[in-house]
């Protein structure tokens, strides 16, 4: 009962049809009907503005940035502009300040993301499972997410300022923001406060994917609350956790606002973003500033790559695109 295949003949016909363009209803290309071409055109048309803006404001500048990083270019001495290949990279990479800032950035990133993961998970569980006041908890948790970082940073700064702050008075000794260890702790605290809710929301989306029946089955099977959490919930939530970690890690690596307000980078508390900014805006050194920009970009790219390749983080939006 096999039906005779019509493919070869039809294909030939299609091709010859392709040549006859004078007939308006004939298709210019085989297998592309009017509707399909319309759809393509519309797709491109709709995406073009967004794509253009994104490319114009990121791709071009980052290439331009790379070009600048190969030059000696100090706005204080514009006449000394000169192409120096990778000399700027040598300068930056052999500079102690850069590596200190890099270390500070890594420290802030690792500690804050680690703490946020734990706190965020706890917060997600509370938001997801609380029996009372769910709306209240979710609303409150959104406030740190929504608040302007600079505002929050000022709040923490004044809280720790001697005599002004309610927290500074709790600790007897001096000004915590002027000592490196305590200042870094405060920066990390401010970061954690601000972004734990975001982490928690992402994790909550993962929690929602854990079927209630699965937890019930596990408890019937004799699993304790902790075992249900580690053996049932965590494995199901793994993709959500990895995505949340990826986003927060990259975000924490860009830390700038909190440091700017809390310490302004004093006492070796600068992050890489801070010193890149300072080189540019205070030092007016475009060459070095651009070099740092490129290096930060590379660092971020490496972090993202590690997450995606090593941990198999599924990039959001990559697996789907369902037409029905």
């Amino acid at each position: 009962m096999s039906v005779s295949s019509t493919t070869p003949a039809t294909t030939a016909e299609e091709l010859s049809e392709g040549g006859r363009r004078e007939l308006p209803q004939k298709r210019a290309k085989a297998a592309l009907s009017e509707g399909k071409r319309q759809e393509r055109r519309l797709g491109w048309l709709l995406c073009a503005p967004a794509a253009l803006v994104m490319v114009a404001v990121t791709a071009y500048p980052i290439l331009y940035s790379f070009w600048l990083s190969l030059q000696r270019y100090d706005l204080k001495f514009p006449s000394e502009r000169e192409f120096v290949w990778f000399a700027n990279y040598a300068t930056v990479l052999s500079n102690g300040y850069w590596w200190t800032a890099f270390g500070v950035t890594l420290l802030i990133t690792v500690v804050s993301v680690a703490v946020e993961l734990v706190l965020g998970m706890a917060l997600a569980l509370v938001m997801h499972r609380t029996l009372i006041g769910r709306g209240l908890v979710r609303t409150s948790a959104l406030i740190p997410y929504g608040i302007v970082t600079v505002v929050a940073a000022f709040s923490w700064r004044y809280a720790w300022t001697p005599s002004t702050g309610y927290l500074a008075n709790l600790l007897s000794d001096g000004a915590p923001l002027t000592e490196r260890a305590s200042a870094l702790s405060i920066i990390i605290l401010a970061e954690i406060w601000k972004t734990t809710p975001f982490m928690a929301l992402l994790l909550m989306a993962g929690l929602a994917l854990v079927p209630e029946d699965l937890l019930k089955a596990a408890s019937m099977d004799g699993a304790s609350a902790w075992q249900r959490f580690t053996r049932v919930m965590l494995p199901v939530m793994k993709p959500a956790i990895l995505v949340a970690l990826l986003f927060r890690t990259l975000d924490a690596f860009r830390v700038f606002d909190n440091i700017y307000v809390l310490t302004n980078g004093a006492n070796e508390t600068s992050s890489v973003s801070m010193i890149a900014y300072n080189n540019l805006m205070k030092g007016l050194n475009l060459g070095i500033g651009s070099t740092m920009s490129v290096l930060i970009f590379l660092a971020v790219a490496i972090i993202a790559f590690v997450f995606v390749k090593l941990f198999g983080t599924a990039a959001p939006g990559s697996s789907d695109e369902g037409r029905r």
């Binding site: 019509t6 493919t7 299609e14 209803q25 009907s33 009017e34 509707g35 319309q38």
Partner: peptide, 23 residues
């Protein structure tokens, strides 16, 4: 219906070829 393209062959409704017509 016209919601999917016809790769090859012909569809006629009421005697008219409608392959390329929108739904």
């Amino acid at each position: 219906a016209g919601l999917e393209d016809i790769t090859s062959g012909e569809l006629r409704i009421g005697g008219q070829r409608v392959n390329d017509r929108a739904p």
